[in-house]
Amino acid sequence: MEFTQVTFFLIAGGIVATAVGVVTLRNIFHAALLLIACFGGVAALYVLLEAPFLAGVQVLIYIGAISVLILFGIMLTERVMQPEQTARNEQWWLVLIVMALLASALAFLLASAPWPISDQPLIPDQIAGLGVDFLTTYVLPFEVASLLLLMALLGAVIIARERGPEEMEMEKRPAGDPAERAP
């Protein structure tokens, strides 16, 4: 067995083990820490696939931003689960069956399909090529993605913002009644 294959098995084992921990651990904070390890494993896999830019993006956005957001979300909603409650709901065994079926069906289909493996060499300067592609061929999706991020930013602030008691009162009152709206 080659060195790269051993590396792949180590990384893949780490990814699957941490992912199983993420979905089964009762302590949500520990699950989030394992999620960070899982994202790191995926970044290592991108290095193995010779996509260094994506590995960097994975570390910056998933480990640096999304994990921190999730940790903040956990801390802001702390102590909501009762100790006697399990982490999984009553239909977990049904989900387990569906999951096993889906995994085996996907693995069978993907392994049996005749993929046209290309023997062409890897594109030489990936990062420069990505920059050119983003600003020429894919400039419209690129701009739409910026707009999506702006909308998500504003939407998240508006949804999660703390409303004062007066504002809550205003929202409850029926609209179109000027006398009611006077303070």
Partner: peptide
């Protein structure tokens, strides 16, 4: 195969967890 396994594990997390943040973590997987 690794992608299929990771997707299924994430699906389990999204469908079988009680905590809404854990559901989001399953979607990330």
């Amino acid at each position: 195969a690794l992608g299929a396994i990771l997707f299924s594990v994430g699906l389990y997390g999204a469908l079988a967890r009680r905590n809404a943040v854990a559901v989001l973590m399953g979607i990330e997987l």
